[in-house]
């Protein structure tokens, strides 16, 4: 029963939602809308679970004084402080919440991501070698696209930007479309396996 009931709900709802999607009758649309609203509420509960999990994980870390526990204090303090500021003083453009968000969180996030430029340039210098025909082609394509898409590229040759655009619109698009088809077929197969109860790993446990 513990396994059969979720499998039955999954099968019924999966089949009903597929049929509902293709029937534009008001009854079908209202049903679809109701289920979507349930889904939105359930997804919001997932956020509550995530917050609960975060609190539990970091509280344990602080209690047991595990390595890096002061960072857990910062995490929990920041989370509670931002929640309280947002809830009690609002989130208007000139609010304290927005001020902290724009002047602390935003620069921190941007800085973390900006570090990638350093790692990528160093890695490209060390690893990007024309060792084989494939690697040489990749290198040539990367150079053309990089130079062609820079404003500087048009001063080297007026043919460079259109050629870079051609690489994106023809060889890149062909490979991207191939990947998209692969992903789409894979998604359909996985969805069918879940609806029909062949794939059961989402239930958790063994079997």
């Amino acid at each position: 029963m513990k396994r059969r009931l979720p499998l039955a709900i999954c099968f019924v709802m999966g089949v009903v939602m597929i049929i509902q999607y293709f029937i534009p009758h008001p009854l079908s649309l209202n049903f679809g809308s109701m289920i979507n609203k349930w889904y939105i509420v359930l997804a919001a509960f997932a956020l509550v679970l995530a917050i609960g999990n975060l609190i539990r994980h970091h509280s344990k870390k602080i209690q047991k004084r595990k390595q890096g526990w002061p960072y857990s204090v910062v995490t929990l303090t920041s989370m509670f402080a931002m929640s309280a500021i947002g809830l009690f003083w609002g989130v208007a453009p000139d609010s304290l919440y927005q001020l902290i968000y724009l002047h602390i969180l935003t620069p921190l996030g941007a800085t973390m991501f900006a570090l990638l430029a350093y790692f990528m340039s160093s890695a490209a210098y060390r690893a990007f070698r024309a060792r084989s025909l494939e690697a040489t082609l990749l290198l040539a394509a990367a150079f053309i696209v990089m130079i062609g898409f820079m404003p500087f590229g048009q001063y080297i040759s007026t043919h460079l930007p259109p050629f870079a655009e051609w690489i994106m619109r023809v060889p890149n698009m062909a490979s991207q479309r191939g990947i998209l088809f692969g992903v789409a077929f894979g998604s359909i197969a996985t969805a069918l396996k879940i609806i029909l109860g062949i794939e059961r790993s989402w239930l958790g446990g063994k079997e």
């Binding site: 430029a117 990528m120 340039s121 024309a130 290198l139 990089m146 404003p151 500087f152």
Partner: peptide, 15 residues
Amino acid sequence: SMVHILIIVFIILGN
């Protein structure tokens, strides 16, 4: 643009 030029120069040097 300047960073892209620099990366290209470094890749050429490496090669």
